[in-house]
Computed example of a mutant assay.
Amino acid sequence: MSALKSREAILFGAIFALVALIATRFPGFVAPGNLVAVFTDTTPLMILAMGQMVVILTRCIDLSVAANLALTGMVCAMINVAAPDLPVAVILVIALVMGSALGAINGILVWKLNIPPIVVTLGTMTIFRGVIFLLTEGKWINAHEMSPTFTGFPRAEFLGMPVLGWIGVVIAIVMMVVMARTTLGRAVYAVGGNPHAAVYTGIDVGKTQFKAFVISGMLAGLTGYLWVARYSVAYVDIAGGFELDVVAACVIGGVSIAGGAGTVVGTLLGALFLGVVKNALPVVDVSPFWQLAISGAAIIIAVAFNAKSGRSKGRVILKSAEHAQ
């Protein structure tokens, strides 16, 4: 855990240094209003990354989060077009339930059929995108077709920040409590740390992984509505490739691909790092398409860092054992 805290401190320092460096050329970047905008723009990534974190901690991965987002967002938009007077609260419930159901499909396939998570979620990623096309025949839903209430909710400001940002803050607090103070949180870490030992302590590994996928799906579904409402558009390829950023945020934040290690704070910092990079690229006149390359490189560097730390820890343990003999 101390290594993770050190990793978080380094990442926080890197974010601070990056922002400070950009501010030397473009002072407006650190204006309070712009920093709030950067945080709000990064909130969807933060929410998805927190769900992905839970899945990765159980030694699984969910590559369908962006497709879940797109499908749920499209369904919410279609419902709004058909029933524009439907309260936003109902739309939110629909998004949460539908996202959870899509996540449950992944969880059941992994739990009951023992199919590798990467295979399951690659398949459902394609299926979810295909379902969107079948529902819409490739047509878009644009801003003029959505009700002002539907699109206005995530943009409405409260205490100087859009509701979207506050939703991210609330979810972060809830996730911190869940992971640190609940039986489910402890089970997630136990399953990822040593699944065989977890079984002996009475933890159902498959069921825990199922719950992790449901959480990931639920947060993806919620993000689907927030994304569509904020940008006032829904289409088949919405958030295409965003799953790479989600995984990158987790890995950069110190979540081990091998499972069992990682924190909510680290995941949030990983997402913020990518968010700052994304928003800074246009400012320094660099194509935003470089973000994909940066995300990929960051994953490789972070995994290499984790692997090196793991080997160092292993050497320390071996030396201790030798001295004991």
Score class of each variant (00 low, 15 high):
319 K>E: 15
90 V>E: 04
73 G>N: 08
17 A>F: 09
125 M>N: 02
125 M>V: 12
274 L>M: 12
165 G>H: 01
156 A>H: 10
254 G>R: 04
50 M>H: 08
288 P>A: 11
150 F>W: 02
217 G>E: 06
103 G>D: 04
22 I>T: 05
126 T>D: 08
84 P>M: 02
6 S>R: 14
319 K>Y: 15
143 A>N: 15
319 K>W: 15
114 N>T: 08
221 G>I: 01
184 L>E: 12
218 M>T: 13
161 M>V: 14
249 A>L: 08
13 G>R: 04
165 G>P: 00
166 W>C: 06
6 S>T: 13
264 V>M: 06
51 G>L: 02
277 V>L: 14
185 G>R: 00
73 G>C: 05
126 T>V: 15
282 P>C: 13
284 V>Y: 10
186 R>D: 15
69 L>S: 01
108 I>W: 08
221 G>Y: 03
300 I>L: 15
137 E>F: 11
100 S>M: 03
325 Q>K: 13
159 L>H: 04
124 T>Q: 01
61 I>D: 03
178 V>M: 01
21 L>N: 09
216 S>M: 07
303 V>I: 14
162 P>H: 05
4 L>I: 13
278 K>Y: 12
272 L>Y: 04
160 G>K: 05
285 D>R: 15
156 A>I: 12
160 G>R: 00
296 G>M: 05
226 L>S: 03
114 N>P: 00
138 G>L: 06
236 V>R: 06
71 L>S: 01
44 P>C: 06
235 Y>C: 10
221 G>N: 02
101 A>M: 11
26 F>T: 14
145 E>I: 08
48 L>M: 11
237 D>W: 14
84 P>A: 01
173 I>C: 12
150 F>A: 03
247 V>C: 09
191 V>I: 04
287 S>C: 10
272 L>H: 01
195 P>R: 06
301 I>G: 07
167 I>M: 11
49 A>W: 07
191 V>T: 09
195 P>S: 09
324 A>P: 01
172 A>P: 07
300 I>M: 13
98 M>N: 07
53 M>W: 03
146 M>T: 08
